[in-house]
Simulated scan of single mutants.
Amino acid sequence: MRSFLRPLKRSSFVLVVLAAIVGTSAVAFAADPTDTSVEEAPFLAENDKAMTKMMDDMSIKPTGDVDRDFVAMMVPHHQGAIDMAQAELRYGRNEQLRRIAQEIVVEQQQEIVAMRLGLGQPLPARAPASDQPTHASAPAPSDSMSHDTAHMNMQKESR
């Protein structure tokens, strides 16, 4: 039995040493201030805030209604994607990625509306996108299609 334990102890020791080396390297990498530029810091902070909010908001107490619970978790998930895409729009320079970020904002907003309409939930009041300047004197944008019309169109499509 002792000869069996000796290799096990040795391999356990090796694993502990490897874990310590990897852990130390990861801490050193994360703590290295040259890894992120001063320019990238606002993006990273905004992205971290969006991720934290998303994860917090996705932690729900189940209601017993699978559909409501699904929407309750997916809406913050989609909003997190919107918030991260808006950070890309504010700080990113790659035009292809910025176009993708714009598409994410539009598509995720549409899916949030569709999910809420699917449950008969009220839609939130319209607000300017957080990556756009707010003008107090500017009139609110008008919808080309009302929420009722959108809901009726969704019902037609589902038939």
Rank of each mutant, 00 (worst) to 15 (best):
I82G: 06
Q79R: 11
L89P: 06
M115G: 07
L89E: 01
M84V: 07
Q109A: 12
R93D: 03
A101L: 02
V105F: 06
Q96K: 15
M115I: 09
A85T: 06
R99S: 15
M74Y: 06
M73L: 13
E103H: 09
L97E: 10
R93P: 04
L89M: 05
L97H: 13
H78D: 08
M73R: 13
G80C: 04
I104T: 07
L89C: 07
M84L: 07
Q79N: 14
M115V: 04
E111G: 05
Q109S: 15
E111K: 11
V75C: 11
L89H: 03
G92D: 00
Q86M: 12
Q79W: 08
I104M: 07
Y91H: 13
V113C: 07
E88A: 12
I112C: 05
A87G: 12
V106Q: 10
E111V: 07
I100G: 09
I82F: 02
I104Q: 02
E88N: 09
M115T: 05
V75K: 08
L89G: 05
E103G: 15
R98H: 05
A114F: 15
I82L: 05
I82N: 05
L89S: 04
L89F: 03
M73V: 14
Q110D: 12
A101P: 03
P76Y: 00
P76V: 04
V75E: 06
M84I: 07
Q102C: 09
N94P: 04
E95G: 07
G80E: 01
H78T: 11
I100S: 13
H77K: 04
Q109L: 09
I82E: 01
L97K: 11
A81W: 05
R90F: 01
Q102K: 12
E111D: 03
L97Y: 12
H78A: 13
E103N: 15
G92C: 01
A85W: 02
V75R: 08
A85E: 00
A85K: 08
L89K: 08
E88Q: 14
E111T: 09
H78C: 14
G92Y: 00
V75S: 06
L97R: 11
A85H: 06
R93I: 10
E107K: 14
L97C: 12
E103L: 11
A85D: 01
V113Y: 04
E111L: 12
H77I: 10
R98V: 01
E107N: 14
I104G: 03
M115H: 04
Q96H: 15
